[in-house]
Write a protein that binds this DNA or RNA. Structure first.
Lengths: 196, 196
DNA sequence: GTCTATATGTCGATAGAC
DNA sequence: GTCTATCGACATATAGAC
């Protein structure tokens, strides 16, 4: 674990921008949290500007998100409902890991439109939506929903809404734990209440 | 429609803080958008400080949210699934109306912790969660879910996730329109696919 | 590669003319 | 109630010693 100054600056910038936003974070703040003398320009030996460090922070988080996405297990499908529950828990776990990215998006969408598009691409187009398509395939077609496309949107919305509520308010909706939430959602999708 | 200078300042501040955040918005920006001479201190004839205008913007949005919440119709319950769909569409409509509040929350939670608590109180504790409880009562208990509390969390999460995706990314998940989304969610909850 | 010191600009806020 | 002008604080960024 070398933890170079450059990396400590990236860590500090990520932390502060999540808390205070880009406009509310000063280079002096970043220097202080990175262990440099606040107010000295030591920051500028590592990054050309405040905007550049923001862009590199974002690149790093996007790369991390892609890595986390590769970690998904593809276990054997025994009981479809249990397999679905496990998969949904994985999705929630993934969303928790990319929370920094969601926080950056929530704060700075609009200021950097190109980056918003890239986050959306990783988080939705390639990410959640694509994986949710797999959910559709894993389903053995039991209840035969009449609008599978809309069902997909419901599942994706439920997962992201759950995670965003945790991020913004500090606690999940109705204080339901992730595995319990996933089980309820899986029961809903498979059409089986769980107890029969 | 008098549209006093004071009100134009509040409108401008709301708009800019949503776009750029509190730290990223200058008093000069607000003055310019409000039709005042940028850089002149005319702003200060109406508000004591930048922080005060932020607090008043937020009070106004909280009051508006409470008003919108009173607008809910309570029509007769004919077909439970259709009634549920109508109610979910209303919920989505409500969330769209309070989007400014959600944007302020997304940006400034952490900077003003007391206000975060108040937004959560209006948006979740009194608001969505409470209304979602009504959903539980409206349901004739048909499918008899084994974890109604978790089901509530799923419905609330789906609604907020759908709306937040629209707000952050500019389009709903999977590009599904609100009424189609509500219908799919209602079908899921009542356990009836819609076509039988 | 980090420091002290500082140049340069901008922001929040005030003073005072009209 | 809006303007011009400005003060003081602070922010980004640079220069140069060590």
């Amino acid at each position: 674990m070398p933890s170079t100054t450059r990396e400590r600056i990236l860590d500090a910038a990520l932390e502060l921008i999540q808390q205070q936003g880009f406009g509310g974070t000063t280079v002096t703040d970043i220097e202080e949290l990175a262990g440099l003398s606040p107010g000295s320009g030591s920051f500028y030996r590592h990054f050309r500007s405040k905007e550049q460090v923001f862009r590199e922070v974002l690149e790093r988080e996007l790369a991390r998100a892609r890595e986390h996405r590769r970690d998904f297990e593809r276990g054997p499908v025994a009981d479809p409902q249990e397999a679905l529950t496990r998969r949904l828990v994985q999705q929630l776990d993934y969303l928790t890991k990319v929370r920094p990215l969601m926080n950056l998006l929530a704060r700075e969408h609009g200021r950097f439109p190109d980056l918003t598009r890239r986050i959306r691409s990783v988080l939705v187009d390639q990410g959640i939506a694509e994986e949710a398509e797999h959910l559709g395939r894993d389903l053995p077609g039991e209840p035969a929903h009449d609008d599978p496309h809309a069902l997909l949107a419901v599942v994706v919305s439920a997962l992201t809404g759950y995670e965003l509520s945790r991020g913004f308010f500090g606690r999940p909706p109705a204080d339901i734990a992730p595995d319990r939430f996933a089980a309820a959602l899986a029961a809903l999708v498979t059409g089986r209440p769980g107890r029969e």
